[in-house]
Amino acid sequence: MEANLQYVLSGLSIGGVYAMVALGFSMMWSVAKAANFTHGDVFMLGGVLTVSLMALGLPIWIAAILAILIAAAAGALIERFLVRPFNREANAIGWMLTTIAIGVMMESFGTATYGPLPQPLPSPLAVTPLRFGGAGVFPQELLLPVVAVLAMLGLRLFQTRTHFGRAIRAVAANRVAAGLMGIDADRVTMVVFAAAGGLGALAGFLIAPVIQASTTMGLVIGLKAFMIAIIAGITNAAGVVTMALAFGVVERLIEGYLSTSARDAFGFTLMILVLLAFPQGVFGRKEVSKV
């Protein structure tokens, strides 16, 4: 029983990371109908840049805020130069090549400058674990799913309560119609990519005290987050976050009852089966074909 509680708690923690990264994929897909495969590396920037900036003598909060702002700027630049020029025609897939290529380069460049070894990011919330019976978890770990759910709810509020948020929904629904309303759909898309980049970096910053900050931390988490978004139904933000939290828990349960090495084999198999049963994603609606 206590073991199960432990799996659920630490599962929600890693699930919270998946959720924040997957939410970014969802936001970007909704407006651009493209997946930004550098997103795992933008997530990595949140941890790695914070550690690097702290090494320059900056306090943790300033370092983190700077890292998030740099990641947001990176998101905007990625949209402008890697996605937009390669996503002009309906059904274009050039953005796949450009974002995968630059993602790999970001990781190599990071390894060359930051070094191949993970480095710790000290956090006051990752010193003393909270005890729930025999289960223990750092407050830092509990923060992750909480921030993920808050981010999703905040996004929802922004999109329903603000005029710019309505414009984002309009661009997601019909780019041509949005343009005819006087909305600069390219600019809206760029802003959404920046927000997604910032959110991804926030996740990287928050998980770094738990897993340490390394230049390779984004690869598998980015891929998994993308797959989670797909099986959830990528345009449904609440569904994506729910699926991410659930998947984190399932992974920990597999680790606990089978083994760590079985985790990805079983986890990915499960994803394939879910996709087979729900081709539009579990919470997805049928995509209306774009004109």
């Binding site: 929904r169 629904a173 041509v176 005819l180 309303m181 006087g182 909305i183 004109v291």
Partner: peptide, 23 residues
């Protein structure tokens, strides 16, 4: 581009209406 044309004073009611159904 279309959003610039709107600012200049041209509005189009597009074929198929293109209203935002989820708003």
């Amino acid at each position: 581009k279309s959003h610039e044309m709107v600012a200049l004073g041209l509005a189009m009611v597009p074929e198929g209406r293109m209203i935002f159904g989820d708003q």
